[in-house]
Amino acid sequence: MAETLAQGAASRDGFPPDAGEDPRRPRVETIKGKRSFRRLLRELGLYLLPVIALFVVWKLAILIFDIQRFLLPQPEDVLATLWESRQLLMEESWVTFQESLWGFLLAVGVAIPVAILLTFSALAARTIYPVLVISQVVPKVAIAPLLVVWMGFGMTPKILLAFLVAFFPIVVNTATGLNDLEPKMIYLARSMGASTWQTFTRFRLPSSLPVFFAGLKVGVTFAVIGALVGEFVGAGKGLGHLTVIAMGSLNTELVFASIVVMAAIGVAMYVAIELLERLLVPWSRSRRLEQMGA
């Protein structure tokens, strides 16, 4: 038995049989069926737990403080409204979703070249950064009415608002990501004969992805908020508009139902980005942390 083992090692490694196993070679086994069904259930439970807790607290609050129905509806009534008004909610959320998405994509599209400019030109960094910071601290809610007055009740001012709030976190994270490359990696790239352009595309760009995606995740949720702010201020369509109408007629069930849908849009877009990240950046830090916990 021992003999056949030794021979096996010899044929694999080309080491003489008496050299035995290479001590530097750690044992690696493949685990089959790693993600078990139970594990999946446990994870699902972890997601559902806070929702159930919220439900309970909600019901208890109504019971204990005897809250009027038009102030705070029963959670099951909200669920019922979600179902009954699904047609309406779908239509309105489609508008909100589109506004958020276009605003977000516009933000990404502008943020990437600006971030590259910030990374490569000290002069650009000095002139652009103050503008960025000022544009960030100006409250978007305050300029929302102006935009509506200028651009009307259509989608344009909402897309612009979504863009304005999503832009800052994305541009800052993209610029940070592009600076994330270990400076000595540039030396390595140089010694390998890489040109400046190749150093950028093959080293700086890939190394920026984890932080870039962190920015996208913040940006995408901001974009939804931006679009909604626009709709609250003045619109003929969208979930924000629906909320204002429902509030006017004290239809709190519908208000709550549309709030739930708003949150769902944000979550869905966030999850989409996260899936994209898992696909494009399988080596990212957050994945590494996950592995450590496993």
Partner: peptide, 27 residues
């Protein structure tokens, strides 16, 4: 030239083997 820097400077986004063959990518 081939350089082994004081830090290993592996590209986190590439598998081990691709880190090694990357040396030839520009050559």
């Amino acid at each position: 030239v081939g350089i082994v820097f004081q830090e290993d400077l592996l590209a986190e986004w590439k598998h081990t083997i691709d880190n090694i063959t990357m040396q030839g990518a520009f050559r």
